[in-house]
Amino acid sequence: MASSYWDSTQRKFWTFSKQQLALERKKIEESERNLVNLYPLPDRRLLSIYFYHQLAKMARPLGIRQQALATAQVYIRRFYTKVEIRRTNPTLVLATALYLACKMEECPQHIRMVLAEARHCWDASFNDISKIGECEFTLISEMNSQLIIHHPYRSLAELQTHFTLIPEENTLAWAIINDHYLTDLPLLHAPHEIAITAMFLAVVLKPTQSGLQPNAAGVANALQTLGNVRNTGGQGQQTRNQKLVDWLAESNVDIEAIVECTQELISLYEIWETYSDKACKEQIAKFVKARGLDK
């Protein structure tokens, strides 16, 4: 896939620098200054966690696979860099993104099933498939029909054979990739950079000892190991870590990118501590109700 990622619309049109992304968001916020002031929202990462929980709730009964879920998350993130969230009914956008992602990831779901599950799992107010159908047009147009997503899972599979990760490490790396969709990383970095970060953290965090849930402190420790790479050839204690560090130093992987990804994940795990399902739900409901977006 390497060759296809480099020429992909994902790289050409949907990978930003941090500054570019901030600018895009500022633009749409400025255009809806009033709404933004009237309806404050939780941190974007907290909203992303909320969205993910919602998507997962719906994906379970439909048997939708992780990759389709990931694609839906990327669609939602892309869409909201172009459309102010307070102008939309997020529930409808979520259902539609999942419906579209399932088609793209070759596990299609009937639009009626998606509607039925949205109503069942989320108590969604819309009750007509044409709402999802119409929203699909909007979603595709805003994304300029650029629907093919390159995920880090495939790069991880390649790395896994190269480094012979143990199953626990692989599981942890996979979980870290799942988590990165809660951040802006999919819009900031190439999938192989994410995969390398995930693998690196998985190996350094040693899942067998610390359990499978990564946390901010653990990841911060890992950053120090990365620091060794930057100073090239620090004396790592474990041979395995050392092998990884050497490989990172010798490969033309952008170490700064790996550091950035790691920092982004640290701050995700930090803010996660403050997450409240209720707060997100209520704050979204406020503008949806007030503006009649659910009608």
């Binding site: 020429d7 619309t9 579209l100 793209m104 498939i129 159908g133 699909e136 300029n144 650029q146 093919i148």
Partner: peptide, 21 residues
């Protein structure tokens, strides 16, 4: 006359046409 969801083959074709050059 109503939106009823785009067929999977149309979605595939749109995505591939956009991606390939």
């Amino acid at each position: 006359l109503q939106y009823s969801g785009i067929s999977q083959s149309a979605i595939r074709e749109m995505a591939l046409c956009t991606e390939l050059a």
